[in-house]
Amino acid sequence: MPFNRLSALWGMLAVLSWLATGCSPEAAPPEAPPTVVDSHVIQAGHGAAVTRLSGRVKAAERTSLSFEIAGEIRRLTVDVGERFAAGEVLAALDDERYRLVARQRRAELREAEAVLREKRQDYRRQASLAEKGYVSATRLDAARAALGTAESRHASAEAARELAERDLTLTTLEAPFDGSVSRRHAEPAERVGASQPILEVISDREGFEVETSVPETLVGALEEGSRHEVIVPALGDAASPATLRHLGTQPRSSNDYPVILAVDAPPAGLRSGMTAQVALSLAEPDADATLPVPLTALVYTGEDRVHVLRITETHRLERVAVEVVAIDDGRARVRGDLAAGERIVARGAEFVGAGQAVSLLGEGPERYH
């Protein structure tokens, strides 16, 4: 019958379709191949932790010199780079106006002294006559008041004379110490205001210091008075011991804290403004407490949270939170739930995540894409 042959044909097509689908409509899709990662085996930490930072050399004693009064600069005796001795006149203003004012104040003082002598004599005379009953108490009071006024005017004139003579002495700018000029802000014949910077000078007597900054994670490992090392590339990498003189309490931008180190033995040729490399030896009571890892293995997730990805024996990734204790030469010394001999993702850790299956670069069969 045609109908029976058609039914048999549809049955054969159903069997073939079932075989083509793998005999099970609910079979799970195959698992994705492991991601290939570059790994690093953690080594045991040895020795003190050292962090290298960039800094700049500065004179330990430096200041900006200015006149306390306004005027026109008559002369400047030094230029940038020139040396001077303490007490030497470095600049002077045109003092003609100040000399005239001082002369006027002296004359006013002499006039006030003459008036005071006159009123003092008059009061004494009136007081003597009042004792004999020849003058009234009202007249004596008037003489006493006139004497008081004369005394006040004399005191004012004396103070004005002292201020004028002081201003006259301030027309010269003297060196506060032995040193040299690092910058000049004005020129002869230029009119300057009070407290306007004229010269920036540095001293020879206090040596040099290096200023740098450290991240907040390292502040607790430093203390004032600790010894470190300063290296100056411009002088052939000349090195000198340095003492930490100041550790800032207020952060700069990006939570970096200022640090100032005194150069204990300045190398020959050291000058203010040179760049320096600061090797900070961080306090670390337990050398085994930190482990070195590549900087590229660190993953920052905001708000100072840092982690690495540990590779387990089953080649799965585990997230391990760490604390960065020091940074030096492409490595970071970290503290956390890690141990020497464990393997972590060396680079590209931000592109993989915890729980992910991985294979190690350079191990196992090559994959071609």
Rank of each mutant, 00 (worst) to 15 (best):
I69S: 07
A130H: 11
V299E: 03
S128I: 04
E158F: 03
L90K: 03
D286G: 07
A340T: 08
E323S: 13
D237T: 03
M1I: 05
P365M: 03
V41W: 03
H315N: 14
P267F: 10
S7Y: 06
T35F: 04
D264M: 01
A287L: 07
V322L: 07
R75P: 00
I344H: 00
E111Y: 10
A14I: 14
E174M: 00
A142P: 00
V259F: 04
P30F: 11
F67L: 08
A86F: 00
T212F: 15
E61P: 01
A276D: 02
R335D: 12
R117W: 14
T296V: 02
Q277G: 10
H228Y: 09
S213V: 08
A32N: 02
I73G: 00
R153Y: 07
A321Y: 07
V181P: 07
G341N: 09
S240E: 04
H40I: 02
V263M: 00
E72W: 01
P2G: 03
S203Y: 02
I202D: 13
G207I: 11
N255W: 13
G45M: 05
E113N: 14
R319M: 04
K119Y: 10
E209V: 11
L261C: 11
S203H: 05
A137D: 11
V358M: 02
A60H: 12
A70F: 06
S226H: 09
L361H: 07
V135P: 10
L6V: 07
V263N: 01
A289R: 12
E26H: 15
A339C: 04
L93F: 07
D329R: 14
D167M: 02
S7E: 06
P215L: 13
L100K: 09
E318G: 03
V278N: 03
S281L: 09
E96C: 00
G11F: 13
A146G: 14
H185Y: 15
P2Y: 00
G148E: 13
E113L: 15
A159F: 09
R252T: 06
T249W: 08
E162Q: 12
E303G: 06
R120W: 08
A321C: 01
E31L: 13
R305M: 06
E162P: 01
P34K: 02
L65H: 11
T275F: 14
Q126G: 11
E118D: 15
P251F: 13
I42M: 04
H315K: 09
R97E: 05
F67P: 03
R52A: 14
A175C: 11
A221C: 05
S128R: 14
N4H: 07
A48N: 09
A234Q: 07
A268Y: 01
L163H: 08
S240P: 04
V50Y: 05
A262M: 10
R335C: 10
G341P: 05
F84G: 03
I260L: 08
D167S: 08
